[in-house]
Simulated assay, not measured.
Amino acid sequence: MQCSYFDAGSCRSCTLMGQSYAEQVAGKQEHCRALLAEWRGLEWLPPVTSPESGFRNKAKMVVGGTVDRPALGILDEQGRGVDLRECGVSAPGLTACFPALAAFVTLAGLVPYDVPARRGELKHLILTESPDGELMLRFVLRSTESVVRIRKHLPALREELPRLAVVSANIQPEHKAVLEGDREVLLTEQETLRMRVNDVDLHLRPRSFFQTNTAVAAALYEQAREWVAELSPASAWDLYCGVGGFALHCAGPSRELVGIETSEEAVASAALSAQQAGLSRVRFAAGDATAFALGADRAPELVVVNPPRRGIGPGLAGWLESSGVEHVVYSSCNAVSLARDLAAMPSLRPRRGRVLDMFPQTRHYEVMVLLERA
């Protein structure tokens, strides 16, 4: 894939841009296998690849420039807006919306936040597209000052973008590198974006996390479901469950399944999905994964973990090592922390592994391993 922004030096976010896709995938596979080389019994499945371009279902656009000439993209080293509306990794359905969103900034008089001067209101536009083509739009603002104007002109925007289903304003008043704040103001009747992945309906609220590559996320969940179905545990946990992707794919009519996630919004979304699917033996709760495990009366037969980049850490790794859990499905976005966690669980041996290229054009990838108690 070639990118005019990368070639011009305007954006270097995609560090592997210009390298052949086959080389990218091979390099990621080699990197992961080297990190996990000491586990000699590990069987590697073929890597899951992605479209090279147009794969991102979510665009986080910094808003720079002026009201009359807004720039949607990133900031340069001086804090000035760099327009990236034609970014090739964004899904075409997102790219098609950017002209209308830029025009809306002008229509509603939303002053872009000037980072060096610490003035202005609109910091980011965050746009997400569902597999069915519906859209969720979030305005990240310094205050609620602009909300009344957004409400006033929102009908015109929805007429321009009829796929717009969920709109909200997130309030982030602080001058620091934090994407969003704690307060979300919903501006539409519809509260969730339906994300249909494989045969499972997931629901995404504005502040909930979802994998940015829908096609590879579908493969990730399907692989987990295949492994869990083969093992057929009577009980399972999904720790760091998010909106319930793994839990809802791995649910079964006779399987007790619990999902744990710190985000109450994500838990509410997961519970809604379980209710709509009639999964009475699946429940979700808000809480810390490690604290939940340490406080549990008994361990399940299988645990799924999908932690952030830092990994599960020594507390949860130590509990899993001593718990008697027979199998763990570990999905990781950072093979370095995965290797560290595996070293802390010597009784749980990785038997199968698979690299999934969730993030083409970058050095990042997802890897999932199946652990079995020795």
Results as ranks from 00 to 15, higher is better:
Ser20Tyr: 02
Ser20His: 14
Tyr21Phe: 08
Tyr21Asn: 05
Tyr21His: 00
Ala22Gly: 03
Ala22Arg: 02
Glu23Tyr: 15
Glu23Arg: 14
Gln24Cys: 07
Val25Lys: 03
Ala26Arg: 11
Gly27Tyr: 08
Gln29His: 02
Glu30Asp: 14
Glu30Leu: 13
His31Trp: 06
Cys32Ser: 09
Cys32Glu: 03
Arg33Leu: 07
Arg33Lys: 11
Arg33Asp: 11
Arg33Cys: 10
Ala34Ser: 10
Ala34Leu: 13
Leu35Pro: 07
Leu36Pro: 01
Ala37Arg: 09
Ala37His: 07
Glu38Ile: 11
Glu38Ser: 14
Trp39Gln: 12
Trp39Tyr: 13
Arg40Lys: 08
Arg40His: 04
Gly41Asn: 07
Gly41Val: 03
Gly41Gln: 01
Gly41Phe: 01
Glu43Phe: 08
Glu43Asp: 11
Trp44Lys: 09
Trp44Gly: 15
Leu45Gln: 15
Leu45Val: 12
Pro46Phe: 04
Pro47Ala: 14
Pro47Val: 15
Val48Gly: 06
Val48Gln: 10
Val48His: 05
Ser50Gln: 15
Pro51Cys: 01
Pro51Ile: 08
Glu52Ile: 11
Ser53Gly: 12
Ser53Ile: 10
Ser53Tyr: 14
Gly54Ser: 13
Phe55Ser: 05
Phe55His: 13
Arg56Ser: 00
Asn57Gln: 13
Asn57Lys: 13
Asn57Gly: 06
Ala59His: 03
Lys60Tyr: 02
Lys60Leu: 06
Met61Gly: 01
Val62Met: 02
Val62Ser: 04
Val62Tyr: 03
Val63Ile: 14
Gly64Asn: 13
Gly64Arg: 06
Thr66Glu: 13
Val67Asn: 07
Asp68Pro: 01
Arg69Val: 08
Arg69Ala: 15
Pro70Met: 13
Leu72Ser: 05
Leu72His: 13
Gly73Arg: 10
Leu75Phe: 12
Leu75Lys: 05
Leu75Tyr: 15
Asp76Gly: 10
Glu77Pro: 00
Gln78Asp: 09
Gly79Asn: 13
Gly81Gln: 05
Val82Trp: 05
Val82Arg: 00
Val82Glu: 00
Asp83Val: 08
Asp83Lys: 11
Asp83Asn: 12
Asp83Phe: 01
Leu84Asn: 05
Leu84Gln: 00
Arg85Trp: 07
Arg85Ala: 10
Glu86Asn: 09
Glu86Met: 01
Cys87Val: 02
Cys87Tyr: 04
Cys87Asp: 07
Gly88Ile: 12
Gly88Gln: 13
Gly88Phe: 06
Val89Arg: 05
Val89Pro: 15
Val89Lys: 09
Val89Phe: 08
Ser90Trp: 00
Pro92Val: 09
Pro92Thr: 14
Gly93Asn: 02
Gly93Lys: 00
Leu94Met: 03
Leu94Asp: 01
Thr95Arg: 13
Thr95Trp: 01
Ala96Ile: 12
Cys97Lys: 04
Pro99Ala: 11
Ala100Gln: 12
Leu101Asn: 05
Leu101Pro: 04
Ala102Phe: 06
Ala102Cys: 09
Ala103Gly: 08
Phe104Tyr: 14
Val105Phe: 04
Val105Cys: 11
Val105Tyr: 10
Thr106Ala: 09
Thr106Ile: 02
Thr106Val: 07
Thr106Arg: 06
Ala108Asp: 03
Ala108Cys: 12
Ala108Val: 07
Gly109Ala: 04
Gly109Ser: 07
Leu110Thr: 00
Val111Ala: 06
Val111Pro: 03
